[in-house]
Design a protein around this nucleic acid. Structure first.
Length: 781
DNA sequence: CAGTGAGCGAGCTTCCGCTTGACTT
């Protein structure tokens, strides 16, 4: 007979706690929420004061049955879900679904998973806080209303299967607006002036920068001329101590940012690796917005620093979470045992663990101390000065262990080094002065991680949703993650050297980007539409202001259905109105002009499969009318910027290029980009060629290249197993068998494989089904 | 990841937050 049942949210946590509590306690996990609104229906009863219709999802039924039977057997049930809005709601749903009686149900919370903390929690139980639960219901219902009323409007006005929501639509807005800022950005230039001086010893060089930038060539020329005969004297030397403090311990968002910068992980990669570390008991929970460290962790960090670096390197620090909407249900992300330096695991896991461990230790270490020296060089008869700044690290402190990275590339060149020894009033000889034209930089495109940071600053989204939100806006094709080629820009360099002024033009590549988030036509159109009709929901402060209401509900100062009613009374009429406007054309449609051949109008718009150009109007009511012609826009074209001429050219496809070996060569654009069809085979057209302009010779070359490649592709085949082939792919040799592909280890020669070897490799790969499964998931998305 | 290569008319799509698992109707 089980005396006590404890229910927590995560199974990893359940395992640890069970050890602390002994045999009178059984610990189970709810695996998060056990009940939610129906997935395919609105599920909110508008006739009855927004009553939510909760159901137990199919994949939770079995679990709920088990929990129910264990709860029935227990004398006492302890609901130990997290101490935040969602956690309180989980406990409430459990109490309802498991039919728990108040007299033998206790709600407990603990902030760290230690024996003491848990025993203390058991001694100080409370009831379920229904106000907090109601705040969660309000949050849930609001999100459902927004999502399920806005999305269908998009299906009608833009494209089927699109979506909108409180979080994802703002994420898209940030990216769309940033791209517009970049397009509208006009850079300004000014000359940065750096002089090299020879110190009195005749050999040492001091480099110093002019304390202002010069606005154009003319000003540079005047200035350099005036320097030709000027005297240069050191007129000031100041030394100032500077301190640098370590960054706070990791939250989900800061971990994602640093793992992206230092290790190159994507946001979802970081979360997957962290999840494995958590499940192995190596780190604390990875979805958190708290920077708090438990007393236990603070203590062990202290010990680790003392034993490795000494007392001088230690400084006690307590961090407080200040981000909006933080709910502090967990600790910061840290190693469970800080003394644990090396771990077992994959290379990825080791690197992420090391990052977490170093950050945790560094945050309890002493400030780094630097001495900053500023040397000022006066120019005889002028008010400008040349200034040299140098920094010397006098005590490394936390930098011994960890240095936070930045996104800003320009900061890297600003590293100040050591300066030579000089004395006041030293007079210097001018070696040369170099004035380099520098441009103001356009705003940066978002990376996954910097988008997460921005969302967190705005208080939008939660640690558990950052990675999925990015996935959603990518899946909907509102944004793409991609590269952008830079453009060449000339800049001027003017030098004064040996009494002569020389001018030169140099070139640099600017504006190139790798793996950045950029809006698509669909994203832009949807965003503009939502901004026009639903600016309130897209407002960056929308979440913050509803959070205030949720807080009031949690405090018992507001009835949750009143808050929802207030919102719905304003929101829903706009939904109705917007849906009722039977616009002739779809959102984002643009008329480019008239097709000279047919005399019909030419449009661009978002079609069923993305951006298309269209000649002529559709007349769905008239079956005999001529149907409009369609052509898909090519990569790099946008419905915002395409011209009539460019659009008309798209209708030249598919285009007969010519004949080769007696068969026609046809160029067209398919789902995977431009291609040539010849003799029933397909050949992709590379980026530098266009299907519109490709010549017969170029096409033949591509076809021949593909033929050669296909020949190389085939390595080996077995007569007794016609389904199995060893082939050469883009990523090296592989085995193709029954529509699936299998890796060949690098250690074996593919030519030497026997049929038996292949079967073994296939059997081994099928044992661990990770790759095959991932593929099916991707296909669905 | 390993190949693919339409056509815009008959059914369905969608939210945000908790948490991991994986063939059964």
């Amino acid at each position: 007979m089980q005396k006590n049942l404890v229910i927590v949210e995560s199974p990893a946590k359940a395992k640890t706690i069970e050890k602390f509590l002994g045999k009178d306690y059984k610990v189970m996990s709810s695996y998060g929420h056990i009940r939610d609104l129906k997935t395919k229906e609105f599920s909110i009863d508008l006739e009855h004061n927004y009553t939510p219709q909760y159901v137990i999802p199919a994949d939770k039924r079995k679990l709920v049955t088990e929990l129910r039977s264990e709860a029935r057997k227990a004398d006492q049930v302890w609901l130990a879900s997290d101490e935040d809005r969602e956690g309180e709601a989980i406990s409430w749903h459990l109490a309802e679904v498991l039919d728990l009686k108040p007299e033998n149900t206790r709600r407990i919370v603990f902030h760290e998973i230690t024996k003491n903390a848990i025993l203390h929690a058991i001694e100080t139980p409370r009831g379920i806080n229904i106000n907090l639960v109601n705040a969660q219901q309000a949050r849930r219902v609001l999100d459902r209303i927004v999502g399920f009323e806005l999305s269908p409007i998009l299906w009608r006005k833009v494209k089927p299967a699109l979506s909108a929501g409180r979080v994802q639509s703002v994420a898209v807005r940030l990216i769309v607006e940033r791209e517009r800022e970049i397009n509208e950005f006009v850079s300004e230039s000014a000359y940065r002036v750096v002089a090299s001086f020879l110190l009195p010893d005749g050999t040492t060089v001091l480099k110093a920068e002019l304390n202002r930038r010069l606005k154009d060539k003319e000003e540079v020329m005047d200035f350099l001329k005036s320097c030709e005969s000027a005297s240069f004297t050191i007129d000031d030397i100041t030394k100032k101590p500077v301190r640098k403090s370590p960054a706070p311990p990791f939250t989900t968002s800061t971990l994602q940012q640093e793992a992206a910068r230092k290790l190159g992980y994507s946001v979802s990669q970081t979360m997957m690796v962290a999840q494995r570390l958590y499940e192995s008991g190596l780190i604390t929970y990875m979805r958190t917005d708290s920077v708090n460290l438990s007393d236990l962790a603070l203590g062990t960090a202290h010990e680790a620093i003392l034993s490795t670096y000494g007392e001088r390197y230690y400084k006690f620090r307590r961090y407080h979470t200040k981000s909006k909407g933080a709910q502090e249900a967990h600790e910061a992300i840290r190693p469970t045992y800080i003394s644990n330096v090396e771990i077992n695991g994959s290379a990825q896991e080791k690197k992420l663990y090391e990052l977490i461990r170093k950050r945790t230790i560094a945050c309890q270490m002493a400030d780094a101390e630097l001495e900053r020296t500023t040397i000022s060089v006066g120019i005889g008869g002028k008010k400008e000065k040349f200034v040299a700044v140098g920094e010397v690290l006098s005590f490394d402190g936390f930098l011994q262990v960890y240095r936070e990275s930045t996104d800003d590339e320009s900061e890297k060149e600003q590293e100040n080094g050591l300066l030579p020894a000089v004395s006041l009033h030293d007079s210097l000889r001018l070696e040369d002065i170099v004035a380099t034209e520098r441009f103001t930089q356009r705003p940066p495109r978002y990376t996954e991680a910097s988008l997460v940071r921005r969302l967190e600053e705005l208080g939008i989204g939660r640690p558990s949703t950052y990675a999925p939100t990015i996935q959603t806006i990518l899946n909907r094709e509102y944004v793409v993650k991609g590269d952008k080629e830079g453009v060449e820009r000339p800049y001027g360099v003017i030098t004064l050297s040996g009494g002569k002024i020389k001018e030169a033009r140099k070139k640099e590549i600017v504006g190139s980007d790798r793996n950045k988030l950029m809006p698509t036509d669909i994203g832009t159109v949807v965003n503009d539409f939502l901004m026009e009709y639903f600016p309130g929901v897209l407002d960056y402060n929308f979440t913050a202001s509803v959070e205030k209401e949720f807080d009031a509900i949690a405090e018992g100062e507001m009835v949750w259905t009143d808050a929802i009613d207030k919102f719905y009374k304003i929101f829903h009429p706009i939904v109705e109105e917007t849906a009722a406007v039977r616009t002739e054309h779809k959102v984002g449609e643009r008329e480019l002009g008239i097709d000279p051949k047919s005399g019909k109008p030419v449009f661009v718009k978002i079609g069923r499969y993305g951006p298309v150009a269209q000649i002529g109007q559709a007349h769905p009511e008239d079956k005999t009318a001529e149907k409009p012609q369609f052509a898909t826009l090519m990569k790099g074209q946008s419905i915002e910027t395409i011209t009539l001429e460019e659009a008309l050219r798209l209708f030249d496809l598919p285009r007969v290029i010519g004949e080769y070996e007696g068969k026609e060569m046809v160029a067209a654009v398919g789902r995977f980009g431009p291609f040539i069809r010849h003799d029933g085979k397909f050949v992709s057209i590379p980026k530098d060629l266009s299907p519109l302009t490709i010549t017969v010779d170029e096409a033949i070359e591509l076809i021949e290249a593909k033929k050669r490649k296909d020949e190389q592709r085939f390595i080996k085949k077995f007569d007794e197993e016609p389904d199995l082939e060893i082939l050469n792919g883009r990523f090296g040799p592989y085995i193709a068998y029954k529509k699936k592909n299998y890796k060949i280890p690098k250690t074996v020669k593919p030519e030497a494989l026997t049929l038996e070897d292949c079967r073994k490799l296939i059997a081994e790969a099928d044992e661990k089904p990770s790759t095959a499964k991932r593929r099916t998931v991707r296909k669905k998305a």
